[in-house]
Write a protein that binds this DNA or RNA. Structure first.
Lengths: 218, 218
DNA sequence: TGTACATCAGTGAACGCGCGTTCACTGATGTAC
DNA sequence: TGTACATCAGTGAACGCGCGTTCACTGATGTAC
């Protein structure tokens, strides 16, 4: 019982409707947040009855899971594409910001406060590892040839706790740079997207640029 | 019609019940998240009927508002107390982490993804300004006597966009240090509290310590 | 090319649930003389 | 100290709502001979 390569018309149709459901789900999330996601509301928006969606998603959780996976996949693809074009750390940082501002709710669904009661699917760890690999490669490339002044306490700690870096052979300094890259840029982006900078009168892009400069040592 | 100084027994009782409602609200938020906050559920937990709570809070939004204000108030008090004890930037950083880990949901309610459809009360801006003032003072104290090498682009930008610093006379370098302090520490804390570091195998406290060291220039 | 059958998308009714909120009320607590 | 009255905490019934999800069904689409 081998799955046929070319999708049948019905399979094509199913995939098409699934995509449309997800499209409306994102729109709904954009206006009311992830916790307000409602299958019935999506169905109504599509001109379908509520139960019809159960042909395409087993339940609400499976839909959310699909959205989260798509979001991770999208970021991983964007990162890989940039890296393939020879982008350095600063290039990845620019891509991350572009990706985040392009669809704030997508960023927040993945990196924001977890949806209460929802357990993240395990198969996203593969995709996050893919993202981390691209980041680690860029960090390793950014390391100077000579080891630098002296390894800080964080480098020492990470040298002994590098399970998350998988099979990467990046030096400890690259590991700490990757973590710092991630948390610093997330710090700016999440405060910005959550609206904590609004009304303060300065441009968050400047803060982001300053963090990128500090990370790439220029 | 001047309000009496000493609260009447009834006023005391009202304040007491209000506190108890908020206590149960926090417990509920801790287990199911802020968007799942339910007046009826709180009432049931307190052995009251649902409508009884409307004696104490006009509606659900007013309860959430009270929780947010209490959270900000709590952080502001903690910061001021530490600063009064002569704490420097590193001391404030330690206090922030302690405060965040003491009650993760409280941190996330204030600094996490905004509750969809909920408009934050304006009177919290006074309290956030108070927090910022303590932070700015500590940053100004951390600046070296001589101006330092050269002002970065962020300092230049902030020198012209310092409305958020109110009447503070902190130099631009202190302003950028304050913003960086906030967003870097928030980056680590929010990823940690959202569970993005779990399973990675390293200790988030080390990353936090490294960021504090980088911020205080040691 | 035509017929018989299987597959499957979508419907409408129904289930139980919990939510926020209102309303008219009872009964206890406090106040004024 | 005792009585009459006002205040107000809390109740129970009720409102309309939207949710996720199930079930038996209709009717269109695709498949096999």
């Amino acid at each position: 019982m081998v799955k046929s390569q070319a999708p049948t018309p019905r399979e094509r149709y199913r995939a098409q409707v699934r995509e449309e459901v997800k499209k409306h789900a994102w729109e709904q999330i954009a206006t009311a947040g992830a916790s307000a996601l409602s299958l019935n509301a999506i169905a109504k928006q599509m001109g379908l009855s509520g139960p019809a969606l159960y042909r395409y998603f087993a339940n609400r959780d499976e839909l959310i899971t699909a959205l989260i996976r798509d979001a991770y996949r999208s970021l991983a693809d964007a990162f890989r594409a940039r890296a393939a074009d020879g982008a350095d750390l600063a290039g990845l940082a620019a891509e991350l910001r572009r990706w985040a501002l392009e669809d704030p709710q997508r960023y927040l669904l993945v990196y924001g406060t977890p949806v209460p009661g929802y357990e993240a699917p395990t198969d996203t760890t593969e995709i996050t590892a893919e993202i981390m690999t691209v980041l680690l490669d860029a960090c390793a490339a950014a390391e100077p040839a000579e080891p630098g002044p002296s390894a800080g306490p964080l480098d020492v700690h990470l040298a002994a706790h590098r399970a998350w870096a998988r099979e990467s052979d990046a030096p400890p300094a690259a590991l700490s740079r990757a973590l710092t890259f991630w948390s610093r840029l997330h710090g700016v982006l999440s405060l910005e997207l959550a609206g904590h900078f609004t009304g303060m009168g300065f441009d968050p892009a400047r803060l982001y640029a300053a963090e990128v400069a500090a990370l790439t040592g220029s």
